[in-house]
Design a protein around this nucleic acid. Structure first.
Ligand code: FES
Ligand code: FES
Lengths: 144, 144
DNA sequence: CCAATAAAGGATATTTAGGTCTTTTTATCA
DNA sequence: TGATAAAAAGACCTAAATATCCTTTATTGG
């Protein structure tokens, strides 16, 4: 469904959101441990998320990653997926035609379009706040 | 969503079904042209589909690929996806946890499970016959 | 100012997906 | 029966995703 980079990116952002809700900045090392991801690779992904304005980063001692309250409420899973994997999964043809076009549909177009819309809507509606609170109260987990 | 191999496999099978409905066997070359795919790579995929019993293959002059009427009715998109990409997309965790487990869910589990079920059901219900007839009457297309 | 800390950046390595090429096997039919 | 046609099989190549390593830059606190 998503690339590894995107999976790490989503998990990292949720974790940063949890910590930010407790007014804590969190370091790359801590993130990688918490989401069970390779440190250096995670660094690349966080760089991209920082450039995209999804998370804030600070260098130096006491540095690390964080989100402000507005971000925690406004950033949706959809934004992270777009930033890392692009929008192919939301707009692309399920059978790989150059573009998905209802006027010239592939054989699965009509069947796919509904599911793709459900996925898009779901990801557009799901905020970091919602996912972060579930994690914070122990309902969900980021590794196993 | 699907791998390239899987996209080619689905398209190839639909095309073979169309031709089989007209009692025509079809060669690798013809298939690759019709679905706009690399010939040698398509050969590999068709080998796998033949081994999986999804299509029948015959060597020699007049040889090629075909499906019997039972296969055209019974083979579902789901079967092709499982044969080529495996069932990770149907059972795997959306965030890449080692296994998707409702007792120990990842943050997106509850949101994902419904969409994943819709996708699975849709692919399990969609037969080659249905897709082949749509293509045959010109409603849909395999390349662009 | 300086030492320590942490992210940014860039070069490199590894693994997997995607794709090609050549040889072998099987079947047809003239 | 032998020339030919077509898929099967296996070795090989290429590009992209994943992952690592090293150097640079920014920030902090003493
Ligand atoms: S054309 Fe293939 S999904 Fe729309
Ligand atoms: S645990 Fe992640 S989708 Fe079920």
């Amino acid at each position: 469904m998503f690339s590894k980079a995107c999976e790490y990116g989503i998990k990292a952002t949720i974790f940063i959101a949890v910590k930010s809700l407790h007014d804590q900045r969190v370091s790359l090392k801590e993130i990688a441990e918490e989401i069970d991801s390779p440190v250096a690779f995670t660094a690349k992904i966080l760089q991209l998320l920082a450039k995209s304005g999804i998370v804030d980063s600070h260098k130096g001692p006491t540095g690390g990653f964080q989100m402000d309250r507005t971000g925690i409420d406004n950033v949706k899973v959809y934004d992270i997926v777009c930033a890392i994997d692009g929008d192919k999964i939301f707009n692309g043809c399920g059978l790989g035609l150059k573009q998905c076009d209802a006027e010239h549909p592939c054989p699965v177009h009509d069947k796919f379009i509904g599911i793709r819309e459900n996925l898009t809507t779901m990801l557009q509606k799901t905020s970091m706040f919602e996912l972060a609170t579930g994690l914070d109260i122990g309902l969900t987990q980021l590794k196993r």
